[in-house]
Every structure is written in C-alpha cells, then in structure tokens.
Write a protein that binds this DNA or RNA. Structure first.
Length: 580
RNA sequence: GGCCCCGUGGCUCAACUGGAUAGAGCAGCCCCCUCCUAAGGGGCAGGUUAUAGGUUCGAAUCCUAUCGGGGUCGCCA
C-alpha cells in the first residue's frame, strides 16, 4: 500500500467536504495537490501544498486556508500532529502505530509491496538495442540495452503489459557488405589470400562464422559468381550475427520477446500500406526541400523528392521516403515498422535510441502521430554516450584499429550485476563515465557493493535469528508485536521503506529507472547508519538473545528492508547478495 | 547557422517535473571496532545552481537572450 496516496485520499475527502460547505467552489480541480515526503524530515512525515494551491480560488491567505484544512486533518485517527509552516505548507505527522502497521503490511505483501496497477494493463512496446546485425554488441550498445530492459521491468512492475522488442536492420546494403566479408573469410579458410577493402568488416568474429559456412557448403561457393552466393549468404550472415547478439544479451540477462526483421517488410506490401495511410491523409507529396540553414551548401542541389509532410506533426522539415533510384530511404521501412507496432494494438510505444540518433526523434514521432491520428503516444528516450576509463585515464577506442570494447569483454571483466547497476546510476540523457577499476572497488564509492553489502548484512542477522528459533517467515513476522519499534532511527527506516511504492510510481511515470538505483543507495545508507548505532546503543541491535519478542520485531524491520532492496534490484536486473 | 541534450561546492552526481534552509559520495581535517559483517558509521569545512532578464505566493526546475560543452543536419543504415 502507498501511504502517501492513502493520506492524499483523506485530504481530498476533506476538501470535497469544504466544497459542499461552500468554503471552496464546487467542482474545484484538486489534481495538482500533492502529498509528499518533505525534504527535511524535521517538517514531519508528509507535506501538502493544498492551501497554497487553493488559496487563489477563494481569495484568502494560504495560511488561513491551511488552518481550516488542518483542523479537519487533526481529527484523523492515524494523524498524530498537524502544523502549518512557511508560506502555507501543511505538515503532517503520523502516529507510531500507523508506521508499525505499515511495516506489517509490507511483510504481508512481501515482494509485491510496491507493485501497482498504475498501468491498467495497458500494452506497451519497448524497442531497444536494435543494433545493426553486423557484429557483436559493444559498450556503446550496453547502456541502451540495460536501460531499456530496466525500464521494461519497471513498467511491468507498475502494471503495464510490456513487450521487449528488437528491430533487426537486415534490409540495407550493410548486410551485403557483411555477406561479402564472410565470403572473404570463407576463401581464407581455404588458404586463399584476401584483402579487406573499405566498407567490409575485417573483425575476427567472422572467422568462426566462415568456418561454419565452409563446413556447411563445402567448396561449392568458391567458383560461383557473387549473384549466386550473395542471396543465400545474406540470410546465413544475419542469422549468425543475431546468434552472437542474442548470446551477448543473454550475458546481461536480457530476453527479448520479439525480434522484428526489417527485411520482412519488403515485398510484403507493408511499406506501401504504411505510406498509403499517410497518403490518404494528404501527407505524401513530391517537392523540393530547402537547403539546411546556415550549413555550408557546396554540394547542395535542389532536387525533387517524394516527401512525408512531417512538419504537419511537429517536425522541422519534411522528410524524404524515396531515393532517386526509386528505392526506399531508411525512414520508409521505419515508418512501416511503427505502423506494424500500431497494428498490433499497443497503447503506447517507447523507443530507446543512442544520442547520435537524436535527429530522428521528431520525424519518428511525427510518423506515429500521423499513423495513429495522434492516439498512440511514442516516447523516445535517448541514451547518452558511455566514456570508458582505465584507472582514471580515458580508454581510447578506435573502430579502425579494431580495439572496440565488446559487451562480452566488459561483462566478463566486471560481471553482469556491476555492469547493469553502474549503467543505471546516471540519468539516461547525461553522459556516463565508466571506469573499469572503480566499478570493482569495494567501498562506499561503488554503489553496487554498498547496496549489496546492506543486503548481505541483513541476511546475515536473519540467519542468526533463525538459529535463535525465530520464525522468519514473512507471514509470521507480519503478525509480530511491533510496538517496541519506537526509536527515531527505526521509525525513519520504516518511513524510508514507505516511500518505495511512491518512488516506483514516479520512476515509471517519468521512464527513469535510475531513480530506483538512487533510492536503493539512500535506503542502504540508512540501514548502514542504523546498524552502526547498534554499537553505541545496544537496544538498537537486531538480535537480543534474551528477548525473542523484541528480536522478532527487529527482524521484521530488517526483513522489510531486504524485501525492498531485492525488489528494487530485481527491477534493475541485479541479483541481491546473500553473503559477502 | 537550424534543431536536440547538458552546465549544480575542487571532482563525480542527486533534487520526488514549481515547493520550505539546494542534498549525497570522492578528495581535505577530526572521531568511532572487548559489541549482529569497520567492505561500515559520526562530525567539520566547502554553493549567488554558467550569466542577464522575465513569469508568481515560491524557480536549479518554466519562458527569453547570451556564454561554454556534446550530438545531429536532403537518397548511411
């Protein structure tokens, strides 16, 4: 349960009451009235801006209105005190019993504490990674992969029906280049000398693929012309690359629900159908674009093109859908792909792009808006670059030198948990520094270890409690007598736990899984602080061999913290540590 | 030049999308293990939120301009 929405409900009831008494106008909009934890805990447990928001409507001073509202709030059973502060905040404190009861309900809910139906089972499609099938994933893809997967988990935790999807760019010329590169390696496997020209892929990862090809087709390709082997080899190549990519994703624990092939859109009439839909709405026309403003226009020539009128839907310029040779631009199958997503009945679409694709955001949104008549929102989250460091020194990657750091090498070196957590400790639209050494440090500077250590400490005392014959089942703990949990440090730990459902809601609404990581760090910090207080004040320790009732109540608290930590880590895709 | 993102203590970042005295970690100084995991905790110090205006009860957050950093810019996907 979310105590904040509960108290907000009580508040709204009071406000409705004031409406019917004529103190407030009838049909007042209460939607921007909030009940939130105050920044400073000395201000109480919760604060509402109600009086400040509403005072304009009734032409009274905020503090005066606040008095009226707080008179009613003070009568509510779970509320222990109400006061008015600053420009008209109403600060609310809840009774100790209320917090103790909350702890019980957390234990009763177990790992479901924090889940919500905020999404109303709406169908959401999260498209992410979608790397070109020309090689294994590298670090550049990793952030988007982790972000998309965590966002998908977060949304599904919040009651959305989520599909994880990968768009395979297997339609373009790069697949030909890939096939030719494999053919070179294939010739090499027969001892021939080969040269990798510009535009081919010289990476070692193609060697085993070519050997596989040799085993499959023998010598049969050696003396054939390109137009004979190329069509077959294209499919073989893409399949092989997608196997590589799938196994890379596996290393991070990412399972896609759907792999959607760009190629499948060609020759099936789907691109024509999508563009047909736009044409019906009068959004396809032939015209000449203006040259880009201010940019050097040496090679610019006015040219008539088939254009999508994306400016009708918020884009800056209209976008071409046909090349001069009559084939589609990249954008055309992308429109068709999103049209396909719409036809599959999703209520909202989310695309995760690298920041270098920021220029496509407006046109893609325009396309979805046009195709769905503005009914289905497309949200595009951009992931900024990851800068690699080795002991504080920038780690240089060069595509030409071929020393690109691969996802699998990264994960092999630091492990999937560290990779995932660290990638999520920054907002998606801020650049991220990733230092191979620092992420393995075992200190407070490393959030992964800090959170894991908190969890391991809790698990350790729970194991010891079990040895004292305490029933550590969540059900039993939820029924324990918790009235001894009255110390400020214990109550503030409970209050931090109580913020979890609200935090999840905010993070899900804003598509910001990093908030989960920061919350877990905060919660762990409080746990560590509380733990240390046990050194000065024996009564705060979790284990009391001479008083099992007290011990049980303390273990209930510890257990609730571990529940929230593991739920949060589960959203991030990180395994909680039992021991360290 | 157009568009998008970013600018917060010496460093790396938060700030519940407009709330109260802007919070953490690192680095610096001081302190805490006969005691559930010190891989931890407590304290001191450090800020005109790039700059200048504006919007209002109230701005790091919204608007305008300027400066600085990154990305991107008509048939490459």
């Amino acid at each position: 349960m979310n105590l904040f929405t509960h108290v907000r409900g009580i508040l709204i009831e009071i406000l409705n009451n004031l409406s019917s008494k004529g103190v407030l106008p009838t049909d007042t909009d209460f939607s921007n009235i909030t009940v939130e934890p105050p920044k400073d805990t000395r201000h109480g447990d919760m604060a509402t801006n109600a009086a400040m928001v509403l005072s304009k409507l009734v032409a009274t001073r905020p503090r005066e209105l606040a008095q009226t509202i707080s008179d009613s709030l003070a009568k509510v059973e779970i509320i222990s005190s109400v006061d008015i502060a600053g420009p008209g905040f109403i600060n609310i404190s809840l009774s100790e019993v209320c917090w103790q009861n909350l702890l019980s309900s957390v234990l009763l809910a177990g790992k479901n504490f924090g889940r919500s139906n905020m999404g109303f089972s709406q169908k959401v499609n999260v498209e992410f990674v979608s790397a070109n099938p020309t090689g294994p994933l590298h670090v550049g893809h990793t952030r988007g992969a982790v972000f998309g997967d965590a966002l998908a988990s977060l949304l599904s935790y919040s009651g959305f029906e989520v599909t994880r999807e990968y768009y395979i760019n297997d339609g373009g010329a790069q697949v030909d280049a890939l096939a030719r590169s494999i053919f070179l390696r294939y010739q090499e496997a027969f001892g021939r000398k080969v040269v990798f020209a510009d535009g081919t892929y010289p990476g070692d990862y193609l060697i085993p693929i070519a050997i596989g090809l040799k085993e499959k087709v023998g010598e049969s390709y050696l003396n054939k012309s390109e137009d004979e082997w190329l069509p077959e080899l294209r499919d073989y190549a893409v399949d092989a690359m997608m196997d590589l990519i799938r196994s890379d994703l596996d290393l991070l624990g990412i399972k896609m629900d759907t792999f959607f092939s760009e190629k499948s859109l060609y020759g099936s009439g789907q691109i024509e159908a999508a563009l047909g839909r736009l044409r019906e709405n009068g959004l396809i026309y032939k015209g000449v674009l203006e040259p880009p403003k201010g940019k050097t226009t040496d090679d610019w020539e006015p040219r008539e093109q088939t254009l999508f009128k994306s400016t009708e839907h918020g884009d800056d310029v209209d976008r071409p859908v046909l090349k001069s040779d009559g084939s589609w631009t990249y954008f055309a199958p992308d429109i068709a792909y999103h049209f396909d997503k719409l036809s599959r009945g999703f209520d909202r679409l989310i695309d995760i792009f690298g920041a270098d694709h920021g220029g496509y955001v407006k046109r893609m949104k325009a396309a979805v808006s046009a195709l769905s008549n503005g009914k289905v929102p497309l949200d595009i989250k951009l992931c900024q670059l990851v800068k690699l460091y080795q002991n504080g020194e920038p780690y240089k990657m060069s595509k030409r030198a071929g020393n690109f750091v691969m996802l699998r090498d990264l994960v092999k070196q630091v492990g999937p948990d560290v990779t995932r957590f660290v990638m999520l400790t920054r907002k998606n639209d801020a650049a991220l520094d990733f230092d191979f050494q620092k992420v393995l440090e075992q200190s407070r500077e490393n959030p992964v270890f800090y959170v894991q250590y908190a969890h391991a400490r809790i698990k350790s005392v729970i194991r010891k409690a079990e040895e004292l014959n305490i029933d550590i089942a969540e059900q039993a703990l939820s029924e324990a007598n918790l009235s001894s949990l009255t110390h400020a440090s214990e109550l503030s730990l409970i209050k931090k736990i109580a913020e979890w459902p609200r935090l999840v809601e905010v993070a899900a609404r804003l598509y910001e899984p990093h908030r989960v990581a920061f919350y877990l760090f905060d919660l762990s910090s409080q746990l560590h602080a509380h733990w240390s207080k046990g050194s000065d004040d024996q009564s705060l320790r979790f284990l009391h061999a001479d008083d099992l009732t007290i011990t049980q109540s303390k273990i209930a608290l510890a257990c609730a913290v571990s529940i929230v930590i593991s739920s949060g880590l589960a959203i991030l895709g990180v395994e909680p540590a039992e021991k360290m």
